[in-house]
Structure formats: structure tokens, C-alpha cells
Simulated assay, not measured.
Amino acid sequence: MSVSDLRAPITSEGGAVTLPADKWLQGRTLFGGASALVAYTAAVRAFPDLPPLRAAQIGFVAPVGKDVETRAAMVRQGRNVAQVRSELLVEGKVALTAFWLFGTGREANAVHAAAKADPWPGAPEENDSAMTDKGPPFIVNNFDIRRAQETQGPGEPIVRRWFRLTDRGELDRVSELILVGDTLPPGAMRAMQRQGPISSINWSFNILDAELGTRDGWWLGETASQHAGAGYSSERLRLWNADGVQVMDGLQSVAVFG
């Protein structure tokens, strides 16, 4: 079952669909990147002439299962920027809400590159495999993961990993970034005093360069807890290609239980 199967049921009209969710489960819900991809697909199929995606704000409201209803609405379409809202409903109630910002490219008046990945962990082929026989179904079934830091277990609240999809199907670049951008566990995992469940509440991100590809499908991801307390962690999520060029920058609020 490829990623294409996950998107296949979604139509331009929206409405009820049944997703092949088993391969993409994270506990009792669809993996956040997969559910975000479904919402994005609903938006771009409803409005197929949109300019490139620049940013998004996603709220993970409730568990998303295989039976969902999709809907999308144009909030505003200006000369250069279009803003679209899409939602996934389960049993008539909103389970995911997303706000997508699409923008036409303009002549640049400010230009500077994002910082390259530092410290550089070495190429993915130079690092050991990780999570080959453990983890939620969406990891075991869909990803090849390599280590990208020496830290294991408790320590500085940062998680870095190389990862790639084992079968990306016919994904366009933006859809791939949405699917993989939320792959890693939060950095707060390394600061937890005892084991317990964790759950993403929201995810906001900017796409820095949607056209930039990567080598052999490899992406370097990082989640870093900026602050944790009162049962929540504020996380920064970053994604680089295999050459260390950053392509996505994001923020996330995570509930830390236990």
C-alpha cells in the first residue's frame, strides 16, 4: 500500500471517505503527518489552481480514524495570496482543522539563506539504523530511519534523525514535506522524568523552498523542546535535505502525560 492509496479516496467535492489507515496509525489515531496530508489534499483538489504552498497552521483536535469527512473552503483569494481552510470530521465533529497559505512568487527584496544543519551528523549512509523493530505502525511500515546524533536516552531535549519513506508513490514535493515533517517524537521525550504518552496538539510550519529536492529520499529532521512544564512542551521542528539545506521550519505544542 503506497502513499497514493492514502490520498486516492479524496475528491474535489469533499464528503465522506474511508481511508486505508491501518498502515499509518499512531496509537488510536492517524499519524499527524498523514492526517495533515489528507487535509492538504482535500484543499488542493477542491481548488486546483492555487499558487505554491508557503505556510500552514494545523490543529490536531481529536483522533482521526479511517472513516472521515473532508471539507474545504476558500477564506480569501487575493492577487498573490490565497488562504484555504480544510477540515477532517469524524462522526460529524471536527477532528483536524487546517489553514493553508498559498502565495505566488515575487521579485525578492530580501534574500538570505537559512543556516545549514549544525552540527552535521554525517551522511545517512554513515549512520546506524534506528527503530527497525519497534515504534508505532506508521514508523515500522513506512520509514527507513538512521541515527543523526550520539545522544540516546535522557539528555539535552533534542531529537535528530535521518529518515526517508520506503515507498513515496507519486508524491509531489510539498505533499512529501507535509507527510514527513512531523515524523520525529518531541525533544521533550529526552527530558521526561518517567515514561508516559505524548500527543501533538498543533503544528505550524513555513516551507522555505518547495522546489528543492534531496538525495535518495533522505531528510534530516530535528525536534527541540524550547520549554517544558505544566504538562506541555513548546517544540521547534526543522527539516533539511541530504545536503544540509533547510527546507521547512515549524513550531508545535505537545502534551506530555504521565
Rank of each mutant, 00 (worst) to 15 (best):
104 T>K: 15
65 G>T: 02
30 L>M: 09
207 I>K: 02
8 A>I: 05
14 G>E: 10
209 D>Y: 04
221 G>P: 04
161 R>G: 10
60 F>T: 05
249 D>V: 08
216 D>K: 12
6 L>A: 01
257 F>L: 12
5 D>F: 08
84 V>Q: 05
20 P>H: 08
57 Q>V: 12
2 S>M: 03
63 P>L: 03
252 Q>G: 04
238 R>A: 09
145 I>S: 01
53 L>R: 04
69 E>C: 10
36 A>C: 08
32 G>E: 11
187 G>D: 09
72 A>S: 14
114 A>N: 04
56 A>I: 07
148 A>S: 02
204 S>T: 13
3 V>I: 13
252 Q>T: 05
84 V>L: 06
181 G>A: 15
29 T>R: 01
135 G>W: 10
202 N>S: 11
62 A>T: 04
225 S>V: 03
12 S>G: 10
222 E>R: 06
80 N>F: 07
80 N>G: 07
128 D>H: 13
247 V>W: 00
105 G>T: 15
52 P>C: 07
114 A>H: 07
40 Y>D: 08
113 A>Q: 14
122 G>D: 11
139 I>V: 14
119 P>L: 02
255 A>S: 09
242 A>F: 06
241 N>P: 00
251 L>E: 10
50 L>F: 06
16 A>S: 06
211 E>Q: 10
208 L>K: 03
37 L>A: 03
150 E>T: 13
218 W>L: 07
246 Q>H: 05
143 F>C: 01
47 F>G: 00
118 D>A: 14
57 Q>A: 13
249 D>F: 11
42 A>Q: 02
57 Q>K: 12
171 L>Q: 05
195 Q>M: 14
10 I>K: 01
158 I>P: 03
80 N>V: 04
200 S>F: 06
255 A>T: 06
82 A>V: 01
157 P>E: 02
27 G>M: 11
221 G>I: 02
232 Y>Q: 01
26 Q>V: 09
103 G>M: 09
86 S>C: 06
87 E>G: 05
27 G>H: 09
96 L>N: 08
43 A>I: 08
5 D>K: 12
240 W>D: 00
145 I>G: 00
232 Y>F: 11
223 T>W: 08
205 F>P: 00
95 A>N: 08
61 V>L: 04
35 S>K: 12
125 E>W: 14
99 F>G: 14
111 V>C: 10
117 A>R: 00
158 I>Y: 06
138 F>L: 03
163 F>C: 10
2 S>C: 05
215 R>N: 15
90 V>E: 04
31 F>E: 02
127 N>H: 06
124 P>C: 07
206 N>G: 07
227 H>I: 15
64 V>Y: 00
230 A>Q: 14
